[in-house]
Computed example of a mutant assay.
Amino acid sequence: MRTILNWILRLGGGLIIATLLWVAFIYYQLENYAEPDQVYLMGTPFAYGFVFLFLCGVVFFVIAFFQMRQDPRKLRRTFLVFACGYLIASPLVILAFDNYLLVSPKGIAYNPLFNLDDAKIKRWRDIEQVVLDYDYERLPINQDQHLRLRYIIYFKDNTKIDLNSYNSPLYRQSEFEAIHRTILNNKIPVKTMRPLPDDVTPDTFIYKMYQTK
């Protein structure tokens, strides 16, 4: 019973430390990329999830090192495993830190996961148009299909971004609606690639986005 209790305490303590480090990571990212009158700065789900798992791994390896300090052979093997994992994962942490969406009154900047350079803010007037489209995707737990919105911003320099990709920094409907209102307020043309299917109901998010132009 005492062994189980100690294991639970170590697990809980490790998760708390990893969570605090994760919060510090997010705070430092916000501070590092802060812009005057900034509206949004958000990392992506993959970036934040990967960093949290990485920090959990580091914390629990450090705890393991203390437990094995009396067994040099076991400690050496564990440290080699940790070093290999750290060398592989740490570059991804750096890329995750640089994976963000910035929206300010001046414009928008989106830095993809594997882009090493800081994204330059593109002013609203640099946007040529926004195109709304959709994809069919099948839910993994059943055979039903549903529509996924594609929100593609085309810039005048022939670049584009899809703000609703699977690694999108936008998590909530309210965030999408706020950026969409900003797009409309800046008189940026919004077009639809194709009409929605007839079975899409007016209470759905994708229907509301299609109608707000």
Results as ranks from 00 to 15, higher is better:
G107S: 11
F97K: 14
L75S: 11
D198C: 02
D98N: 15
Y166V: 09
G107T: 07
L87N: 13
V81T: 15
I26Y: 02
K122S: 02
A83D: 07
F52E: 00
L113P: 10
F114L: 10
F97A: 11
R194A: 13
A24F: 05
H180M: 09
L132V: 03
G57V: 03
G12W: 03
V59R: 06
F114C: 06
L95F: 10
Q29F: 02
L80K: 15
I4T: 09
A34I: 04
D133I: 05
M193S: 05
P140Y: 08
T19Q: 04
D37E: 13
K156C: 03
R194G: 05
F82G: 09
T212R: 12
L87D: 12
I16G: 13
K122Q: 09
V131G: 04
T3K: 05
F79V: 04
D126L: 07
G85D: 04
T44P: 15
P36S: 12
L116M: 08
P189Q: 09
D126E: 15
I108F: 05
P195L: 04
L116D: 10
Y134V: 06
Q38V: 03
P189I: 04
S168K: 10
R172L: 06
N164S: 12
V23R: 07
L101H: 09
Y134H: 13
K120I: 05
N115R: 12
D37R: 05
A89F: 02
I8V: 11
A178F: 01
E35L: 03
E31L: 07
P189L: 04
G12E: 06
R69E: 06
Q211Y: 02
V58H: 00
E128R: 01
G57H: 14
F50Y: 14
V200S: 03
Q173S: 14
Q70V: 08
I141V: 13
I88D: 09
L184P: 06
P72N: 10
C84M: 10
M1H: 15
T19E: 05
I8S: 13
I8F: 07
V59F: 11
N164Q: 12
V103N: 12
C84Q: 03
P197W: 00
I16E: 02
N99G: 07
H146M: 07
F82I: 12
W7L: 14
Q143T: 10
I127T: 12
E35M: 05
I4Y: 04
A18W: 02
F65A: 15
P105M: 08
F82P: 01
L41S: 05
L184C: 09
W7M: 13
G85M: 14
P202Q: 04
F155T: 05
L116K: 00
I88N: 11
Q70M: 11
W124I: 03
L102Y: 00
F65K: 15
K208C: 01
A34L: 06
A34D: 13
H180Q: 09
Y154F: 01
T201C: 03
T192E: 13
L184E: 08
A83W: 12
A83M: 14
V59H: 11
L92G: 15
V93R: 00
K187I: 02
L15V: 02
Q38T: 03
K191C: 07
R77D: 03
G85T: 07
